[in-house]
């Protein structure tokens, strides 16, 4: 489903001394089936933004369009439940939402709420478990007996069970170890490819944004600060550092390389191996071809 923000502003607790302008005149477009990363300093409004995608928050100004659904200030949307079925949101620390006695019950909770037939749901379970790499044995255990990483997987599986068209991920790997992080990010990427899910990832990791996203939105103090393809946006060191963000390590490395050796290797999203052969070429012939 494609997503469009038109001059969206959001004010928390309007008309009180606590009023806070969290989003300011935000406009952007996310095409269907794309993978978009949202990056920004803590408090820049990322979580506020994504809560507009499934109607948890309604803009105080402007309009949000998600597929055929529209969210506008003052208008009650009668199809909210439909919207939420289509847009799955994985919140930060999603394991906090687990509550059922068994993992299986928790997995079935979402789709049952949306009125999916029990037999259809049961058929989905093995596939989803495989996607999040959990063994079938966990199904009958209490989610509270699992390890932190497993609980996170169960919670994410609970969202995937709803079979959403849009998957929204709010810092899904916060608090995981590096190995677990990479596994989980690869898992989301595979799901995105296989199911052609429109994926929106909120992250602090420039590396992840560079590696997985087709498009990045950089937020600063509630405004859209930059947008574009990661290879174009994430190399603008000065502009990113001005809002407290770092460039990906690879870009940092290349800029230091240039400083030390006086030779520029252009960045075009190459991975470590490709970079190594680029460097080899520079060493041998004194310049990187192209």
């Amino acid at each position: 489903m494609e997503i469009t923000f038109e001059h969206v502003s959001h004010i928390y607790q309007p008309n009180t001394p606590f009023a806070f302008h969290a989003l300011k005149d935000l406009s952007f477009h996310i095409p269907s089936g794309s993978y978009t990363a949202i990056i920004g300093h803590t408090g820049s409004g990322k979580s506020t933004l994504i809560q507009h995608l499934n109607g948890l928050l309604i803009p105080t100004e402007g309009r949000v369009k998600v597929g055929d659904f529209q969210l506008e200030p003052g208008k009650k949307n009668k199809h909210m439940k439909d919207l939420r079925k289509h847009v799955g949101v994985v919140f930060q620390y999603p394991e906090h939402q687990l509550f059922e006695e068994t993992v299986k019950k928790d997995l079935m909770f979402g789709p049952l709420n949306f009125g999916t037939a029990e037999t259809t749901i049961e058929k989905r379970i093995p596939e989803i478990l495989e996607a999040v790499q959990l063994p079938e044995e966990v199904l009958d255990r209490s989610p509270f007996d699992l390890s932190g990483g497993q609980m996170r997987r169960v919670a994410i599986a609970g969202i995937l069970m709803m079979d959403p068209n849009v998957l929204v991920l709010d810092e899904p790997t916060a608090g995981l170890d590096p190995g677990g992080r990479r596994e989980m990010m690869d898992m989301f990427y595979n799901l995105h490819k296989e199911k052609e899910m429109t994926t929106i990832l909120v992250t602090h990791s420039m590396e992840d944004a560079m590696k997985y996203a087709d498009y990045v939105l950089i937020m600063n103090e509630g405004r859209l600060y930059m947008e574009g393809q990661p290879e174009e946006v994430l190399i603008q060191k000065k502009k990113l550092e001005a809002v407290g963000l770092d460039v990906p390590e690879m870009v940092e490395f290349l800029s230091m390389f240039e400083e030390k050796f006086g030779t520029k290797i252009p960045f075009h999203g190459q991975n470590i191996k490709e970079l190594a052969s680029d460097m080899l070429r520079v060493m041998k012939w004194g310049k990187c071809d192209e």
């Binding site: 948890l56 939420r84 919140f91 906090h96 939402q97 979402g110 049952l112 709420n113 609970g158 969202i159």
Partner: peptide
Amino acid sequence: KISKAQASRG
């Protein structure tokens, strides 16, 4: 936070 998470699950 939790009520939002559960609202997202329908």
